Amino acid sequence: MSNPVATTPVCSVVIPSYNCLAYLKQALISVEQQQVSNIEVIVVDDNSSDETWQWLQQQQISKPQLRSIKLSGNGPAYARNIAIQHAKAPLIAFLDADDTWLPGKLQRQINFHQAFPELSFSFTDYRHLGPNGEDRGTCFEFWPNYRHLVTQAKRYQIKHDAASSLFAENVVGTSTVMASRSALLDCFAFDEQLPSAEDWDLWLKLALSGPVAVANFCDCQYLMRDGSESSKSQLRIKAMHTIYQRYAPKVAKQSSQALTQAKARIATAEAELCNEEHQRLSAIIARLKALFLSPSRRRLIETLADTRNLMLLR
């Protein structure tokens, strides 16, 4: 990120940030380490109070490819949409301020998109890290429909059932995504009216509008910050129901099984919320619903664990 671009950048990196300066510095270092020169990096400061804006202005003096936008606290969906509108490149790569890319990620993804320009978007596997850097496993190894990719040869491939598989299991990490800017604009990008889960909504829109590619490279590190609130869980579940109703008719034409798997995932989220709110019996009922809809060893273990915890409380 040291040389100014004389031509249209090949890729615009979009990073929304809110009171995340310590992590943002590491995110930008990981972009620099990609060693891809012809890019622009757009950081959207969404009304931070931690001197993010001042730091960005100083960084732009020595890093001409870095652009900053100041907003008044409208949330990540609006922030990303503003950055997409301002982006100059035909490809958009998303990175959250508290995540980092591993070396080679950006060039591999650019190369694949340039070889297949009809792609609406692509995504990769990623690794979960705890607050102290502890390894909490990869995304794909957690989800049954994607677990088999972990052991395959490392490569990008077109996923022909993308809409139904992503409806069943939202495995897409935003910080792994590269998308066509024209495809994003055609589907109006992130839905700012959704209270949560606007990322899942966008991946489904894009998957229904054009080809999708997936790579089993673990090219991103995703920070899992503790301390989620039940109010946020409530908003996410509300949004999941809205998105289910929005896309179920189209997905049903591809896979009826994807509908039951999505229902099971929503029921699991409801069980987790019930546990957060100490509604133990309701949690078990939701677990049983999920287990009935989409049986799995993990769901059976979760149901038995919740049942055991309820019995111990009596």
Rank of each mutant, 00 (worst) to 15 (best):
M1S: 14
S2E: 10
S2C: 07
V13D: 04
V14R: 02
I15H: 11
S17Y: 13
Y18M: 10
Y18H: 14
Y18S: 01
L24E: 13
A27N: 15
L28F: 14
S30A: 09
S30P: 15
S30Y: 13
E32M: 12
Q34A: 09
Q35T: 13
N38D: 03
E40R: 03
I42M: 09
V44M: 03
D45I: 07
D45Y: 09
D45H: 08
S48I: 11
S49P: 07
S49E: 07
S49W: 10
Q54I: 10
W55N: 04
Q59H: 08
Q59C: 08
S62D: 15
K63Y: 09
P64T: 04
Q65T: 12
K70C: 04
S72T: 10
G75T: 03
A77Q: 03
A77N: 12
Y78N: 12
Y78F: 14
I84T: 11
K88F: 09
F94D: 07
L95K: 09
T100E: 15
T100L: 11
P103T: 06
L106M: 14
L106F: 14
Q107G: 11
Q107L: 15
I110R: 10
N111T: 14
A115W: 02
F121A: 00
T124M: 08
H128V: 08
H128W: 14
N132V: 04
N132W: 13
G133S: 06
E134W: 14
R136N: 15
T138M: 12
F140I: 04
W143Y: 10
Y146L: 02
T151M: 14
T151I: 05
A153M: 04
K154L: 10
R155Y: 01
Y156F: 13
K159N: 02
N170H: 14
T174G: 02
V177Y: 05
M178T: 05
S180R: 01
S182H: 08
A183K: 05
D186N: 02
F190E: 06
E192L: 13
L194E: 03
P195W: 11
A197E: 06
D201T: 06
A207I: 01
L208S: 01
V212T: 08
A215M: 07
F217Q: 12
D219Y: 09
Y222Q: 15
M224W: 11
D226E: 15
S228E: 12
E229S: 12
S230T: 14
T242V: 06
I243H: 02
Y244P: 05
Y244F: 15
Q245W: 08
V251N: 01
K253T: 01
S255A: 01
T260K: 08
Q261G: 04
Q261P: 01
Q261I: 01
A262T: 00
A262D: 00
R265G: 05
A267H: 06
A267R: 07
T268W: 09
A271Q: 13
A271G: 00
L273A: 05
H278N: 10
S282Y: 07
A283H: 03
A283P: 04
I284V: 09
I284M: 04
I284Y: 03
A286D: 00
L288P: 00
A290Q: 05
A290E: 05
L293R: 12
S294E: 13
R298A: 13
I301K: 07
I301D: 10
E302S: 13
E302W: 01
L304A: 09
L304T: 03
A305K: 09
D306H: 05
R308C: 10
